[in-house]
Write a protein that binds this DNA or RNA. Structure first.
Length: 435
RNA sequence: GCAGGGGUUCCCGAGUGGCCAAAGGGAUCAGACUGUAAAUCUGACGCGAAAGCUUCGGUGGUUCGAAUCCACCCCCCUGCACCA
């Protein structure tokens, strides 16, 4: 028999992970009284999840650890429609082929986080296309649509800006999204006795819609819980960097880049992130915070956070790789690296590319670095060159050297005759190998 | 369909014949200061090493000269009509 950790709710609350719950104060008792089945949905809007999905994903795991049964729903059907909640504009529809491909990828990704073999509260992964795909319009309109009042729907905060705002607008397709998600909840209630839906706070409207529908269709009593949207103290968007979204797929965001992202968390955010994104006990997080406060200089919280989250997503090997690169680039000196170390850095995910010596003279250095993805445009590189912020194997490159890429990559300066570590700015590194 | 409003560089948003690669803000990048923080200050921010080239929904036109004027077209919003 599964044992229930009755302190789950209290822990979630203390971590700041509860934005809203339905049913007033009953949630804590409801969760403590028995093993519940809950779900959270992930729509395939890209070929990978990103760190914005981490809070609900980890929440499923928290619930499972506490003895509840999590269902991860991948929205093969809802992804075809598009959730309008708090989106400023209508989105383009993706083709069914693409969405189906993404659905498969997300299913695989989601599956790595939850346990499918732990007895009664083993996880499930479902795809709502399985029950939505073959439903015909008339059945949908009669059985589902009839339970919704348009009057209520247009008053939902999540679509209000689209309806009120001049220059915006919402198609019937997106407007219907709420019905689809609501039907999911009702269906899961029916199939799995799933009585709780969790999701980001932007999902409140969709979740309460599902609760109403489950009651109207099946007389079921279900609950909802929303998690906070992750915000940063400086007001910029969480999860984006100059190089774009931080993905969970190591092929899209290397464990090294992933690790670096967390390492760069602001002091004002880092303790919150520890509570949100790790399973470390709250007392331990409090201890870290207290100790950082007493210490001058660099806090330890960021590195704890980076280690914990990277290990969680990319495993111990991913973490080890990320730490190896970080150590080599930021702490050690390049000379201390052996030939195999450099090979390893490449394998570990340090961005790298190959150059052919004979072709070097054909283009200026700026172009080579842009091609390698180190900067968005030659202008940026040029700016860095003017400030002596570009270094090749530790030697700063001058703006005058720009047109002479061959001289920048002279063989005498190469490590082991073929490697060049190029640094642009303080944090961007790229490994070039001469072929 | 009719009437009105609108489409500007990543986003918001000025600009209504030359002084516009296009104000201002945000985001982003680089430097100083630092802790691979924050705040602050400085610089960059269409593309190009440069000469120069290409932009303001699209296509044509007027003009010495157009983001700005004209014509047609496309798209969005609001209202009305049509429909019922």
């Amino acid at each position: 028999m599964t044992t229930i950790d009755a302190s789950l709710f209290e822990d979630l609350q203390a971590r700041g992970l509860i934005a809203q719950t339905t049913g007033g104060d009953v949630m804590a008792d409801y969760l403590a009284a028995g093993s519940r089945t809950l779900y959270s949905g992930f729509d395939p809007t890209a070929d990978s999840l990103h760190i914005g999905h981490l809070v609900p994903l980890l929440a499923l795991k928290r619930f499972q650890r506490a003895g509840h049964k999590p269902i991860a729903l991948v929205g093969g059907a809802t992804g075809l429609v598009g959730d309008p909640s708090f989106k400023a504009a209508e989105r383009k529809l993706n083709t069914p082929d693409i969405v189906a491909g993404w659905t498969d990828k997300l299913k695989a990704q989601v599956s790595r986080f939850i346990d499918f073999d732990c007895g009664a509260n083993s996880a499930e992964v479902v795809n709502n296309l399985d029950w939505m795909g073959q439903m015909d319009v008339l059945t949908f309109l009669r059985d589902v649509g009839k339970h919704f009042s348009v009057n209520n729907m247009i008053n939902k905060e999540s679509v209000k800006q689209r309806i009120d705002r001049e220059g915006a607008g919402i198609s019937f397709t997106e407007f219907t999204y709420m019905l689809l998600q609501s039907y999911d909840f009702a269906e899961l209630y029916q199939r799995y006795n799933c009585t709780l839906q969790i999701g980001g706070s932007d999902q409140w409207g969709n979740i309460t819609g599902g609760i109403d529908l489950a009651r109207r269709m099946y007389g079921g009593e279900t609950y909802g819980l929303t998690l906070p949207l992750v915000t940063k103290a400086d007001g910029t968007k969480f999860g984006k960097t100059e190089s774009g979204t931080i993905w969970l797929d190591p092929a899209k965001t290397s464990p090294y880049a992933f690790y670096q992202f967390w390492l760069g968390a602001a002091d004002a955010d880092v303790y919150k992130f520890l509570r949100y994104f790790t399973f470390l006990p709250l007392e331990q997080i409090a201890a870290i915070e207290a100790s950082d406060r007493e210490t001058q200089g660099r806090p330890q919280a960021q590195s704890v956070l980076a280690r914990e989250v990277t290990a969680l997503i990319h495993g111990d090997e991913g973490l080890a790789a990320a730490e190896r690169i970080t150590e080599a680039l930021f702490s050690g000196s390049l000379e201390s690296l052996g030939e195999s170390d450099l090979e390893q850095l490449k394998l570990d995910g340090l961005p790298s590319s190959e150059l052919v010596r004979g072709e070097l003279a054909s283009r200026p250095l700026t172009q080579w670095l842009v091609d390698a993805g180190m900067a968005g445009s030659g202008k940026q590189v040029k700016d860095a060159l003017a400030r002596a912020a570009v270094a090749i194997n530790g030697v700063a490159v001058d703006a005058d050297d720009n047109t002479n890429a061959e001289a920048c990559f002279v063989s005498e300066r190469a490590l082991f005759g073929r490697f060049y570590v190029v640094k642009l700015g303080k944090k961007k590194y790229h490994l070039f190998e001469i072929k």
